[in-house]
Amino acid sequence: MTSDQFSALSDSLFSASIIIYALAALAFCGELAFGRRAFRPSQELATVGVGTSLSSPEDGAQPPAAASGSAGRRWGLLGVGLTGAGALANAGVLVARSAATGRVPWGNMYEFATASVLAGVVAYLVFAVRVPAVRRIGAFVLGPVVLGLVLIGLYLYAESGPLIAALRSDWLAVHVSAAIISFGIFIVSAVASALYLVAVHRERTLGDGGRRSGGIADKLPSVAVLDRVAHRTAVFGFPVWTFAVIAGAIWAESAWGRFWGWDPKETWAFISWALYATYLHARTTAGWRGRPAAWVNLVAFASLVFNLLFVNLVSTGLHSYGGVS
């Protein structure tokens, strides 16, 4: 195949991945619609009983078993299968891009964002397979994934081509790949923290005498599961992000003669690093566990998104390559 054919294949697979991910999101919605609520009444009472901290579940606590109906379980398994198929198409986008350009497929924002989505989906799949209850957050992972890919295709798309001179370095594969992996992992962590806040609010309502409505909030995993997913993904992503920052500093010394210059992207990378360090510390600190820590995690992820979009597209600095990261 020629470079143009590989490029066309990459674009086709990009569209296919959006469609498959959208079908997966619908399947996960089916699991929420047809599955039974996550807790039995007796378990609900135990969860909100005296002596149980809803905002700071213990890591070692075992979540109540999810009671998915057979129909809901089938929808969930279909969603996992479609998500896997979408991930293969997503990976194909990058492989075809690499074949078309003869370089690593993350030389611009379009490729970086597409690869980050893939990393996030793979991280979700790992948890969904290991912890079946995590399947129930699939709609909340795949929904943003579909929206994100649509926006990436509309506003960040770049034709296949060679790297610009500033990015022609062996450090590109090291630094950017680490950033992609950590960004994708942090996507799952942020979704879990957001749903954790919803679940905590719902269980507090029940503790105050409220009744279950049978809505989506009643079918989320337990606060303990959501808290652990958010924390463990951040624990894994943080050292990878730390490595990305260090590798970037080494590359900067090679390219610009200094390790750190407080360029806008460097500054925000450090801010994101500090916020995630704060989250991991807060998660184990009395008075900050639970909801406060979850909010810190969401702010940390927002800083990553700001760094990716605003700093690359709007600000001026050594990392500004006309919208290319």
Rank of each mutant, 00 (worst) to 15 (best):
263 D>Y: 06
284 T>N: 10
283 R>L: 09
283 R>Y: 04
288 W>P: 02
276 Y>K: 10
287 G>A: 12
276 Y>E: 10
290 G>A: 05
262 W>H: 14
278 T>H: 08
247 A>V: 06
246 I>E: 01
259 F>Y: 15
289 R>C: 03
269 A>R: 04
270 F>Q: 05
277 A>S: 11
259 F>P: 01
274 A>T: 12
270 F>I: 13
253 E>V: 00
266 E>W: 03
270 F>G: 00
251 W>H: 08
285 T>P: 11
281 H>S: 07
271 I>F: 07
280 L>M: 11
290 G>F: 01
289 R>P: 01
281 H>R: 08
289 R>L: 02
251 W>A: 09
286 A>L: 13
249 A>R: 02
261 G>Q: 13
247 A>G: 02
253 E>P: 00
242 T>E: 06
251 W>Q: 10
259 F>M: 14
289 R>S: 05
252 A>W: 02
243 F>E: 01
269 A>Y: 01
260 W>R: 11
256 W>T: 09
250 I>N: 05
242 T>P: 00
261 G>F: 15
275 L>W: 03
270 F>E: 00
265 K>E: 00
277 A>R: 05
260 W>D: 08
281 H>F: 14
263 D>C: 09
290 G>P: 03
284 T>G: 07
248 G>A: 05
266 E>C: 09
267 T>E: 00
253 E>L: 06
253 E>G: 03
248 G>W: 01
260 W>H: 12
276 Y>T: 12
242 T>N: 04
258 R>L: 11
285 T>F: 05
269 A>C: 05
260 W>A: 11
256 W>Y: 13
282 A>N: 07
260 W>E: 07
277 A>Q: 07
283 R>P: 03
273 W>E: 06
277 A>D: 08
268 W>F: 13
286 A>W: 03
250 I>A: 13
288 W>E: 08
273 W>C: 06
277 A>G: 11
262 W>S: 13
276 Y>M: 12
249 A>V: 05
256 W>K: 08
245 V>E: 04
255 A>D: 15
259 F>R: 09
244 A>L: 03
261 G>K: 14
245 V>A: 11
245 V>H: 02
257 G>N: 15
246 I>A: 11
243 F>N: 02
253 E>W: 11
255 A>M: 14
284 T>W: 13
249 A>I: 04
255 A>T: 14
289 R>G: 02
258 R>V: 12
266 E>L: 11
272 S>K: 03
273 W>M: 09
274 A>H: 09
285 T>S: 15
258 R>W: 11
263 D>H: 08
263 D>K: 12
268 W>S: 05
268 W>A: 01
282 A>L: 07
284 T>K: 14
265 K>C: 00
269 A>I: 02
247 A>W: 03
244 A>I: 01
251 W>Y: 10
245 V>M: 08
257 G>Y: 09
258 R>I: 12
269 A>H: 04
282 A>I: 08
284 T>H: 15
260 W>C: 12
290 G>L: 03
258 R>C: 07
260 W>L: 14
268 W>H: 08
247 A>H: 03
286 A>Q: 14
253 E>D: 14
262 W>T: 13
279 Y>N: 06
269 A>W: 01
281 H>K: 06
242 T>W: 03
250 I>H: 06
273 W>L: 14
251 W>S: 07
267 T>M: 08
256 W>G: 08
256 W>D: 11
283 R>D: 06
269 A>P: 00
254 S>I: 10
273 W>S: 07
257 G>C: 14
268 W>E: 04
278 T>K: 05
283 R>W: 03
